[in-house]
Computed example of a mutant assay.
Amino acid sequence: MSTSLPVIDLRSDTVTRPTPAMREAMARAEVGDDVYGEDPTVNALQARLAVELGFEAGLFVPSGTQSNLLALLAHCERGDEYIVGMDAHTYRYEGGGAAVLGSIQPQPLVQAADGSLPVDAVEQAIKPDDPHFARTRLLCLENTWHGRVLPMDYLAAARALCDRRGLSLHLDGARLFNAAVALGLPPRAIVRHFDSVSVCLSKGLGAPVGSVLLGSQALIAQARRWRKVAGGGMRQAGILAAAGLHALDHHAAALADDHARAARLAAALEGMSAVRLAAQHTNMVFIDVVAGGTDGFRAHMEAAGVRVSVGYTPRVRLVLHRDVDDVGVERTIEALRSFSE
């Protein structure tokens, strides 16, 4: 089956494209040299997120990977260690940057089904103050994780552990606003437990590029220095920061629509024979291909005009975002049904 209709891209919410209104905001942006700290639009974005999320300062960077890396480099020194989930983005999908560039040792732990790291397991992983061991300095969490929202009582328990054991606490908040929408809470209520947080603007929020790292004045000053070392200093970056400001103003609340469409897609999977619903959380639907094979599934969906990301297991992640409307969801359901016939 072939189609001339627009392609529906469910590989990730990173594929969103700037709207005409966002492009207009970018074109109108007042700019300066951000390496000198002189770009007014970048400064406005940093200050806005710092105030809204309850931090002293912020730093605009090109990517979430760099934002997390700068946090690790600012929190830790050579020979230090951070505790992290075995399937967390900062450990598994960021090229080993902390170890490669910072000589910071990761201590990965198996995550619970909700993405949390059991507090007792974290405590047991903290190394003694002994020269035989790396110095445990930091606990890194992720919210959302595979679409799952970390429970609020868990965040409080993690903060209490870090306070008791002298650790800092960092949040990879790539989809922080999805978590906030799902919980019905302001993002500030989630991040108040953390010493630093990375907020991605280029996923469901729909900006074309950029993340903001938030923390204390001292931590952000250190991160700014590392940003330069890592090649992340940008000049007239206000053109990009304007997209982030527009996204915060106009796109954050609409994340609820992505969640609703994901739930609708998940419900439609009931009774299908070749694919089976594994889970649905926030804007993500996970399915298992139980017949026809993943290569056949991908080819079928591509022919139907639906782009999916197929890995090395039968499980496939479908990600809803602002560029997939109700018609796109119905076309996806139709393609899934025809694969099961």
Rank of each mutant, 00 (worst) to 15 (best):
A157Y: 02
P106D: 07
S216P: 00
A221K: 03
G85D: 00
A25K: 04
D172S: 10
L320E: 03
F286V: 08
R78E: 15
I287E: 08
S63N: 05
V306W: 10
E56I: 03
L53E: 10
T3Y: 08
G115S: 03
L161S: 10
K203T: 02
V35R: 15
R175M: 14
V324W: 09
H246I: 01
V212S: 09
L245C: 08
A99T: 11
D249Y: 10
D153N: 04
L171V: 01
L150F: 09
P6I: 08
E142M: 06
R298S: 14
L320W: 04
L150I: 02
W226F: 15
P20A: 09
G305P: 07
V191Y: 15
S216W: 00
S168P: 00
R298Q: 15
A223D: 04
A243V: 08
R298G: 12
R148T: 05
S340T: 11
M272P: 00
A156C: 00
E302C: 02
V329I: 15
V31G: 07
D87K: 11
P208M: 13
S340G: 09
G147V: 01
V110E: 13
S216K: 00
R159Y: 03
D326I: 10
H300D: 02
L49Q: 13
V61N: 09
A25L: 03
Y154N: 12
R227L: 06
R322P: 05
I126M: 05
L45H: 12
L53A: 08
V308H: 03
G233Y: 12
G115A: 04
L161Q: 06
G244C: 14
P186S: 07
V310F: 13
A263V: 14
G32T: 02
G37A: 05
D39H: 06
P314Y: 08
G204P: 02
A279H: 12
A260R: 15
M272G: 00
A189M: 09
R227T: 01
M152R: 14
V181N: 11
P131R: 11
S340W: 12
D195K: 05
D9M: 09
R165M: 10
M1T: 11
G97E: 14
V310K: 13
T282E: 10
Q217T: 13
I239T: 13
D258R: 00
L176M: 10
I190T: 06
P106I: 07
A88K: 01
Q107H: 11
R224I: 01
A335W: 14
L183W: 03
A180L: 11
R11T: 13
A157D: 10
L49T: 01
V197N: 05
E81F: 00
V119D: 12
T294N: 04
P131D: 13
S63Q: 02
D34V: 00
G96I: 01
V316E: 01
A256K: 14
